[in-house]
Design a protein around this nucleic acid. Structure first.
Lengths: 181, 181
DNA sequence: CGGTCAGTATATCGGTCCGATACATCTGCG
DNA sequence: CGCAGATGTATCGGACCGATATACTGACCG
């Protein structure tokens, strides 16, 4: 997932690790964090895989600027890889963790892929909602006040997300109809 | 975290891995999953640390029932460890992951510890909310429709959680006043 | 009677990610 | 001048997941 996010950000502009992390937080907000403990090793892995490359430091600027920053840029291979990840709408993409990252790049993903991710995500959340409804209905006697409160909150959250997803899907469909005219 | 949850469940009754996992899902609902890939190694670790022990299989039942199940029970040491974890209200306990597990055992945790966890969690969520508000306010021009929608949803969710936490805290305070009379 | 599917049950392995920690530099403030 | 706070790169141990393997049981179908 981090690989996907890094590639997506470097697609726009070259950046060094620290800046990348700030942009990551800005982009993903509450949905995903990513610590330096994952970022730097992943940057190394990506570089070894030739999906990103270190930009040659400009000595003039280096004399003025902060020391020893490594600025990375995306390679042609990296762009290919990003394009592949962008059109992936498999089951993992509707995980809690992945969904937010994918949605953050929706403006660059094809409309039909967006649709499949949105619908997959909805199915996923609906399953969780049903699970919650079942345990709240059947096991509520075996379960204490606090746990029940926890489940009630969880159910509420999933119901809201399904409604939200429905709106997004409806909006996508409206857009599609408009472009078909 | 899994350690805490396992100890808490085995505190009530001895159980084998598969059953433990089902109870875990029932208890934690949407907040936490825990796969077998973590459960079985953790069970082994706990056993080696003498916090849980394998119950001797009853041969009569074994002839009738399903084969080769390992039933674990909590040890005296394990109960001590659980009691320690129960009164821990440190910063990790207000993480997304930990909070739900702790709350699931609230009926067994002292009122003042409950209070500290609830308030810590609220502080944590409020911080996230402020971060979201800031990026939604300042960076909204640099950010596309989908990402903005993602952040709006995130902000909504954190606001709801803060309100929920406030109600829980108010309820705790009312209980406290009642018991002081 | 045989086939096969779903549920019960235990276990391993590679991989992703986090949190703590370390260290070094630059900037602004009092 | 000192020092707090932001900038910047990096490692390591540990928690957890998802895929996968294995094996037994019960029920349903033809």
């Amino acid at each position: 997932m981090l690989e996907f996010a890094i590639l997506g950000l470097l697609h726009e502009a070259p950046m060094h690790g620290y800046e990348l992390r700030k942009r990551l937080h800005e982009l993903l907000g509450a949905f995903r964090a990513f610590s330096y403990g994952t970022l730097y090793p992943t940057l190394g892995k990506l570089q070894r895989a030739h999906l990103i490359a270190e930009e040659a430091p400009e000595d003039d600027l280096r004399a003025w600027g902060r020391r020893a920053r490594k600025v990375y840029k995306i390679t042609a291979e990296g762009k290919e890889r990003f394009a592949e990840l962008l059109v992936d709408a498999g089951p993992q993409t509707w995980d809690d963790d992945s969904f937010g990252v994918h949605m953050a790049f929706f403006s660059r993903t094809p409309a039909e892929v967006r649709m499949r991710i949105l619908e997959g995500r909805r199915r996923r959340v609906e399953e969780r909602r049903e699970g919650l409804r079942t345990t709240l209905g059947s096991a509520s006697d075996r379960i204490d006040r606090y746990t029940r409160e926890l489940h009630r909150m969880g159910l509420d959250t999933t119901e809201r997300e399904v409604r939200w997803l429905n709106e997004l899907i409806a909006h996508e469909q409206a857009e599609q109809r408009k472009s078909e005219e």
